[in-house]
Amino acid sequence: MGFVDYVQAIIDGLLFGTTYSLIGIGFTLVFGVMHKINMSYAAASLAGAYCGLIGPQMLGLPPWSVFPLSIVAAGVIGYVIYLTCFRFIPLASPLATLMSTVGMLLLVDEIVVHATAGMPQNYPAIYDGDPIELGPFILRADLVGVFLICVVAMAVLLALLYRTRLGMATRAVAQQPVAAQLCGMRLQAVNGLTFVVAGLLGGVAGAMIGASVGMLSPLIAGTITVKGLIVTVIGGLGSIPGAIVAGLLVGAAENLFQAVRNVTERDIYVMLLLFAFLVLRPGGLFAAARGRD
C-alpha cells in the first residue's frame, strides 16, 4: 500500500461520508428542536429505503422509482415515529423518549427482518458509468453520484431552514420554545414537520447507502445508528455544519482505517476516534455556545 492508495481511500471515504453527514444532520435537527435523541432514526431511514424497493419488486415500476419512493416513505415513517414516540410523552421525562425510541428501533429492525426474511435485498446503483480518472486517482462514478445527491439534499435543507417561514419557525423553536409559542407558532406542528424533514433527509441517506453498497441488509442498521450518533457528537449536538464536517471526517477516517488495517477492525478505530474527541473536545467541533450536554 503506497501513498496513492491511502489518498484514494480518503477520497472514496469523503464521497461516501456525505451519507453519514445526512444521518448526522437528521439526529442533530431533532435534537435542536426537542433536545431529545431519536434513537430509531437511522433504522427508520433504512426502513424507508426498504419501502422504496416495493415499487420495482411488487408494483412493477421502473428501477429508478426506488429513489423517490424511499425518500417519501422515510418522511412518512418519520412522522409516525413523532406520533408514537414523542407527541404524547411529556418532555420533562428524558428517559421516556429515549426508551420509546429504542423500542421503536427494535420494532423497525424486526419488521424489516420479518418482511425480508432476513435476506439481503439488492439495491440499484444510482449511475453506472465509467469511473472518472484524475491523475493517479480514480473517482467511482456511482460514488460521485451519491456525493452530488447528498450535497443537493443538504443545500435544499439549508435553503429550507434559512430562506422559508417554516425554517424560521424551526430555528425559533430550537432557540426558545416558549417564546416561539408566544409568537403564535404551533409547537406540535413545527416539531412534527421537523421529523418529516429529518425523515426525508434520512430517506435520501438510506437510498444512497443502498445504492453505493449495492444491497440492503438488516445488519446495516446498527452500524449506521452508531456512526450517525458518532457524527452527531463529533460535530457538536445541534450543529448542522458540525454534522456535515464530522460526517466527511468519519467517512474519510473509516476508509483510511480500512485501508491500513481491514474491514472487520475499522469500526473499532472509529469508536476510538469518538473517545479521542470526548477527551479532547467533549463539546464537539462546533459546540453550541451554551456548553456541553
Binding site: 435534537f31 431529545k36 435523541i37 428524558p94 429515549l98 446498527g222 452508531v226 450518533l229 458518532i230 452527531t232 457528537v233 449536538l237 469500526d267 473499532i268 469508536m271 476510538l272 469518538l274 473517545f275 470526548l278 477527551v279 467533549p282 456541553r292 450536554d293
Partner: peptide
Amino acid sequence: PALRVRGLMLVIATLAFGEA
C-alpha cells in the same frame, strides 16, 4: 473520558463503547 459528558452525550458514548 465518558463521564466528562452528561445526559444524551453519555448515552451515545457508552453505546459506542459497547459496540467497540
